[in-house]
Amino acid sequence: MFFTYFKRGLLAGGVAGLAYGLFMAAVANPLVGYLEHAQHGHSHAPDGGSVIAESTTALVSVGGGLLWALFLGGCFGIVLYFLEPALPGRGAAKGFVLAASGFLTISVTPWLVLPPFAPGAEQALATSTRFALYAGLVALGGLIAASSVLAYNRIEPRGRALAVVAGATPVVAAVVVLSLVSPTLVSHPELSADLVAAYRAMVVLSQGSIWLLIAATFGWLQRRTPFESTTTEPTQPTP
């Protein structure tokens, strides 16, 4: 039972990873490369020029994208197995709720304070500070997602529309408050604001698509085997 979910999650992650790897190869790699060359002096290597060939970077990044989606898919399968009974909706809808929660927890909430940045960005904080802040924001995101689901479940008997409003309240409140309160920690002195906005939209949409694809694929795989029991199978006679 657990392993069915885990395997299904990994499969869904693999499908999303293929799509995301393709996206990395076709869109993100060339774009990041271009932005890097368009600005003077941005490199992570000590003296200007990069120590690693660009083709290697591109290939490793595609692999990284695939691994990332696989990882998210595996986590998705495990968490869905445990939390499925507590999630609102029925059938595949539960998966989409979980995917939205995951996206909110590990991406959206941290981005409200530490937005995605293009090469050449100037950071106000040191790397270690950003890691600590990121970890805190992930925890906060998890709390927001959990309170949203709990609010929905509590109000649900009194009407679904009311429950949707109750469930959306923590998310909307957090997004508004965090984006108003947080100072600008990242700036792009050499890039136009439009380009930075487009770059951020690309990052947000691509990460959101990974989650959407994982949930959709997982739901599809689940529908293909509809008659499974949720408890451990009583010893089945094997031929």
């Binding site: 990044s61 990284g64 995605p116």
Partner: peptide, 17 residues
């Protein structure tokens, strides 16, 4: 540095801090 540099594009594209 080596691993960091080669994952560089991915980290930028995935919005990783």
């Amino acid at each position: 540095p080596l691993a960091h540099e080669s994952l560089h594009n991915f980290r930028h594209a995935a919005g990783i801090v």
